[in-house]
Design a protein around this nucleic acid. Sequence first.
DNA 1: TTCCGGTCGC
DNA 2: GCGACCGGAA
Length: 346
Amino acid sequence: MPWRRTLDPYAVWVSEIMLQQTQVKTVIPYWERWMRELPTPQTLAEAPTDQVLRLWEGLGYYSRARNLQRAAIEIVERHRGRLPDDPAALLGLPGIGRYTAGAIASIAFNRPEPILDGNIIRVLSRIHAVPGDPKAGATSRRLWNLSGAVVAAAAQLPAVRLPSRAPLVFSGNCSMANQALMELGATACFGTIPRCGVCPLRDRCRGFQSGEPTRFPQIPARGASVSRRFATVLWTHRGRWLVRKRPQGGLNPDLWELPNLEIGADADADTAIARWIGIPASKLSFHGKLRRTVTTNRITEDLFRLRHPPTSRMPSGELRWAKPAELAILPMMAKHRALTETSEGA
DNA sequence: TTCCGGTCGC
DNA sequence: GCGACCGGAA
């Protein structure tokens, strides 16, 4: 992982925010491109928001890109453009919670701060056979304490020196201990089929001794999801696509998308669009369906192709007729971008 | 189709 | 304390 070859706190921070939601393999190219284009808090603070969102496009959870930039502005204004090493100061920055504050403080600055992410919850719950929902108050506090004990013990050990040609760098024992806990979760202590045979902690693991390590952690089942339908129009005119900027405060704020409308479970998607924009339904041709899940919403989008000049009843919101070259710059929902790229423009 | 995951707003 | 936020992997 390229961010393990640097101790630049900014680089560590960007990687941690990306890794909060996405797997290592996906993050690597995003992180490398980000570090090339926005290599410092200063450059991030000064970048146009469109560029920031464009660099994030496809990763999801776009508020994190926005928070990353907001935090960069605060870092420039209040911390002279450098990330603070103090966990309390880190915690005050937008998008940085207890995990990320601890990760930056320990990994980049070798401070003895505990971290608790999904991997470490699994590792510690198993080693100590911790019952109960790991996110619930008392159990969560217990796991944070157990994580704190690990890093505190690491801080007491004599400093480990790596060979100068080692492929990884560590700021010290606290950094190494926290990364080792996560690594154990990522490479051996898997959720469904853990590799206890290769685990160096097997002999001290109460979960392994119980014969059923996967009984821990005890994560409660999820609630049921809801189906929702949308009708979307792939509307072109004179080689341009009609796109709309999503409003602040909702899903995917400030991202551009193909205009769409929520419809009822039994509604006719094409007549809904026709009424919405004031054209006869016969002008619309069915283009396909898109399915995705957002948290508890199972979303189906019915797609319709339309070649038509603007009407007197255009969709509400910030609209733009964009040429393909403009579309390439605008941050868009990834699935909608794919549609504009695989479907004829004019 | 189901599962996964830090932070934030409520 | 709970649900929204997203896309990818299992």
